[in-house]
Design a binder for these strands. Structure first.
Lengths: 154, 154
DNA sequence: TATTTATTGAAAATGATTTTCATTATTAAA
DNA sequence: TTTAATAATGAAAATCATTTTCAATAAATA
């Protein structure tokens, strides 16, 4: 087993309560794994790690949990074009800060960058406000990706 | 058959020449279809239309052509999380202007928006310059998506 | 405690995308 | 031109991520 959540419960557990979703062992394991990871992980990545911790956890449940977390806005789902989805905590207290992506169209390499967040914040904030109003959308997250060719491929 | 390219060749044909790629009937049909479409189409969408025009064109070739065009930067490939990739011309002279996406996490609806392009242009241009320099990347395109819940789903 | 409801995992089904391979069309060379 | 090399094609088979089905289990509620 692994150490339990600290104190009265992790930040995400309240969200579960609100949704009437149960806090189960498999779900805790998935959340723990996401907290420990800096990378964008695939469902299989999560499954493999989960399986090491608790071999009874099935791939289906991993998919279901990841999907649920995505819909709750706790996890962000990415598709970089290599056929499998990647998942990442939106708010990882210990982990990597919010970042954007630079994707090579030939070799599919993904570079995370965190620079220029100040300029970005300004732009995103403004746009987000305008969009939510205009389209009556409750915006919870965003993604910015640049495409092109990396040093090796250009 | 359908009308041939006007004059000495469409803009994309030069790109083909440069790459040593042949301008074949199936490829012309795929390009034509993309030009006629405003939507983000799936490979199957393209295949169905291509098939109406020329029933000998196979799905495999559609995939291959789309992939090739993506790598050439002529087409942009999107994944919105519904399991199939979408493709769209980057420069569609007659078609829709460059736009960004507003995606509902529950019902998966995709809204295109084109507002606020002036602010965006400024932000994107600046960031793009900085990134190309810093990471020695040849940036050809970008994508911005906002996630959240639409009117019905929130 | 009994009963309803949510969650789970295994196995099967689905469905998009890739690979294989033999054939055909195109270009380059002789 | 004719020929040799190469690129492109399509059908069928193979892959592989993701979903669905369904019976079993666990948790919440009456």
């Amino acid at each position: 087993m692994r150490e339990k959540r600290c104190g009265r419960g992790a930040w995400w557990q309240d969200r579960f309560q609100d949704m009437g979703a149960r806090i189960t062992a498999p779900r805790e394991v998935v959340l723990d794994i996401l907290h420990e990871t800096d990378d964008h992980v695939s469902a299989t990545d999560v499954y493999v790690k989960a399986h090491e911790i608790n071999p009874t956890i099935g791939l289906t449940t991993v998919y279901r949990t990841l999907d649920m977390l995505t819909q709750m806005g706790i996890v962000q789902k990415f598709d970089f074009g290599d056929g499998k989805s990647r998942y990442e905590l939106v708010n990882n207290p210990d982990g990597k800060k919010h970042h954007h992506h630079l994707i090579c169209l030939r070799c599919k390499t993904i570079l995370d960058y965190t620079e220029f967040l100040d300029d970005e914040l300004e732009f995103i904030g403004k746009t987000q406000n305008r969009l939510s109003k205009k389209y009556n959308f409750n915006i919870t997250d965003h993604a910015i990706s640049f495409y092109g060719f990396c040093e090796q491929c250009k």
